[in-house]
Design a protein around this nucleic acid. Sequence first.
DNA 1: TAAAATTTGCGGAAATTTCGCACGCATTTA
DNA 2: TAAATGCGTGCGAAATTTCCGCAAATTTTA
Lengths: 145, 145
Amino acid sequence: MTELDKFDYRLLELLQENSRLTGSELSTQVGLSSAACLRRVQRLRETGVIERDVAVVSPKAFGKRMMIIVLLTMERDRPDRYILMREAFAKMPEVVQCHHVTGAHDFVLRIQVADMDEYSEFVERVFHEPYIKRYESLAVLGSLK
Amino acid sequence: MTELDKFDYRLLELLQENSRLTGSELSTQVGLSSAACLRRVQRLRETGVIERDVAVVSPKAFGKRMMIIVLLTMERDRPDRYILMREAFAKMPEVVQCHHVTGAHDFVLRIQVADMDEYSEFVERVFHEPYIKRYESLAVLGSLK
DNA sequence: TAAAATTTGCGGAAATTTCGCACGCATTTA
DNA sequence: TAAATGCGTGCGAAATTTCCGCAAATTTTA
């Protein structure tokens, strides 16, 4: 893949904000013709610089009003457990993000639920397992980006 | 806003995966005409159920190969500092996500940088301030979603 | 500096989205 | 109960957007 120039960076910047911008809208912002913009965007997609395009759905519209970040520490006896955990988290609709990390904790999860009841039910179901040593819940008051 | 039905949920599910699906592609998956699908999607956007559409850019394509989660604890003397901090974080390109949380920590940041040098430079510049009491860096080994 | 390769802008063609309209279905109103 | 009203559908035309070929321009290579 060839190098990205300032036009590509500008396009990426714009599309990260709003991927529905049309060729001519991009054109006026970037200073290239509409066709040139679209060609470059197409290429950015093909080469994997743009991995995918997604719709961001409001959690509130789904009635999911609470966000919680969980720091998870597992028992150290079974390293293969990490892979299983990741796969399990991937399937849970409450888990909107999951990072495997180094340090005192093993996983950082971002959880989205309707209310405290739903969360405590989730905790009961998922975290009360023998191979989970500790978990710390941080309620999110507000977010950026 | 009126209630969402199973067609809407199906559309949201599909568009969260790939927001570039065309009307006719949605049509075959959902079982409504192309026009009906697009009308519903348009409505979901207007009513804010779909907040926005974004391109997901590969951090690696930008040379940002390291992801770090930071747990930040501030001094408790200046509550107004939180707002300033959030605004400051919003402007930093390294900070791709920022949550203000309750509990032992105050902020959870997700940081994206090229390498350790760039990270230590960032830490030096941002975290070595008198009103920051403590920070814990968790290097991300892998992520889901 | 000349040749080669890449990218651009300009149309027109193809694809996609938007819109008006008539219809069916359910709920409300008289 | 019958008529009226509202809402969403499918169809097809119009509008918009994307895609693609081509010649000119620009950049890279030798």
